[in-house]
């Protein structure tokens, strides 16, 4: 465990927490892509299948449970509790365009051809693209609430910090995980355009709106 990993996990936790705060305080999930949130719930479900079979640490187990809970509560808020406020007309990203290649790739490029390993690989590939329906929705409506941009910033920062963690682990432990690293780089690249807008607009007190 190194500082980049801890900060990455905390950033991830803060992102999910900010999203729940936004929905709960405004009693609205306007501007949030339900499709992205379903994908994240699927990511955690398929990745943490080892929750009861592979004990790593108390920290690891607790974080997995918290992440799963946050993901499912968010989906519940969007599709049940506050579904009237859900902007379904703008959440039109075609999930099959992500799921078909990701399923195909997880069968083709994995570490071992076992059900849990293929599902773990699927979760890594899916996470790298799971934010696309959300980014697509923002580009379609041309705007995002400020708290939603904070959510996206910390969600992007989390994977960027993991990149630093992987460099650190390679240098100190000679640990590497090429599937995670390549997917993590791809995932971080998807946020670059958003990071630019966040720094140039949101941090200067302006609302994020696209021309």
């Amino acid at each position: 465990m190194n500082v980049f990993r801890i900060l990455g996990d905390l950033s991830h936790l803060l992102a999910m927490f900010l999203l729940l705060v936004k929905i709960w305080r405004s009693k609205s999930c306007a501007g949030i892509s339900g499709k992205s949130q379903i994908l994240f719930a699927l990511v955690f479900t398929t990745r943490y299948l080892d929750l009861f079979s592979n004990f790593i640490s108390i920290y690891n187990t607790v974080m997995k449970v918290v992440f799963l809970l946050c993901a499912y509560v968010t989906v519940y808020m969007i599709y049940w509790k506050f579904r009237k406020t859900f902007d379904i007309e703008n959440d039109t990203f075609r999930l099959e365009f992500l799921l078909v290649p990701v399923i195909g790739l997880s069968f083709l490029v994995n570490y071992s051809y076992t059900p849990t390993e293929v599902l773990w690989t699927f979760s890594i590939y899916l996470e790298s693209v799971a934010i696309l329906p959300q980014l697509f929705m923002i580009s379609k409506t041309g705007e995002a609430e400020t708290i939603t941009t904070h959510y996206l910033f910390f969600l992007g920062l989390y994977r960027a910090l993991y990149l630093a963690n992987w460099i650190w682990r390679y240098q100190t432990e000679n640990f590497y995980d090429q599937i995670s690293v390549v997917s993590g780089v791809v995932q971080t690249i998807f946020y670059c355009d958003f990071f630019y807008l966040y720094v140039t607009k949101v941090l200067k007190g302006k609302k994020l709106s696209l021309p």
């Binding site: 080892d50 570490y111 390993e117 993991y162 963690n165 432990e173 000679n174 640990f175 995980d177 995670s180």
Partner: peptide, 10 residues
């Protein structure tokens, strides 16, 4: 060490 299949990250 190629820590494949240990998956100790979140």
């Amino acid at each position: 060490k190629n820590a494949i299949s240990t998956h100790d990250e979140l």
